[in-house]
Amino acid sequence: MLLTRRNLMQTALTLGAMHAFPGLTWAQARPLVFATFTGSWEEAHKAVLVPAFRKAAGNANIVLDPMLSVDQIAKVNAAKSNPPIDVMLHDPGPALQAIAQDLVEPYPVEQSAYYKDLIPAAQVPMGPAPFFQVVGITYNPETVKTPPTSWADLWKPEFKGRVGITNLNSTLGTGFMVELAKMHGGSEANIDPAFKALEALRPSLAAVAANPGQLATLFQQGQIDISPGNFNAIQILKARGVPVEFVIPKEGAIAFKTTIHIVKNSPNKELAFKLIEAALSPEVQATLMEEPYLIVPTNTKVAIKGELAKTLAKDHAEIAKKFVFQDWGKINEQRAAWIERFNREIRV
């Protein structure tokens, strides 16, 4: 065959197009796409969950595409009939949004081997919770000599100009505000007391971080000495040698269940189910509970041990007692208004 310039061009263009739009050549299967969270979650899932899934699913292909909950929702929303993600991971607020926007499948509970072993709070029919996130008080033990015992300690005069918080864009920031409201006689439906308490906290604030990840940087830089903080985020800092400690205040730790969902219209529902099963299994949860991950398990078959038993709770009964779960259905109703108000009142 004679290779004309035109011929060559056509071949090149076709190959290029196939490369640019891989969907053309993938008439059949694409790998399972799991949108996990960024940072330590991705590391943990890559190291423990993915191998367990591949073993259970006959070496099926899987891709981790880490991003924030809200970005997962935006991505799936933009292509509902052919979603680019098969399995989503959500904080409680976004989870309810995803369910309300009809983006997720109910979890096939009857087929699940592990669902019934989860603690009651983790049994969510629209997507069970494979782990919890726990928020307590984080402090620098080199500058804070007496460990704090209550959220109220943040208002102590000795912490003037040393306190860090985050804004309400994050689950952590919003959860903290709800806790403040509850301490001062409010609730998920009545946030007013929290804003009053925040006003009183203003002279103490060294920083209002734009996201929880920044709090870690601020501890590292000595910019703040005390703040509400996520247990798992603190472990990473500690492992890097930053002087930080985590305590559960006497009011209880703010706990978020992180739920995992099969995306509606996913072409990989079978595999998605297998991945979630792996995430709920006692083997995976027990491994994730160990150093360096220290992720709080939800499967009651996993006995709590090690660092978790020391700092958080010794068994599932104590978890139920010490962890405060908030009503995110109520929170979501007014969250936009709160963020608006926070924008206005906290702005310098």
């Binding site: 971080a209 734009a210 996201n211 920044q214 310098v348």
Partner: peptide, 10 residues
């Protein structure tokens, strides 16, 4: 803007 400005500056 967000890393240096923080959450109090919008």
């Amino acid at each position: 803007q967000s890393l240096i400005g923080g959450g109090q500056m919008l």
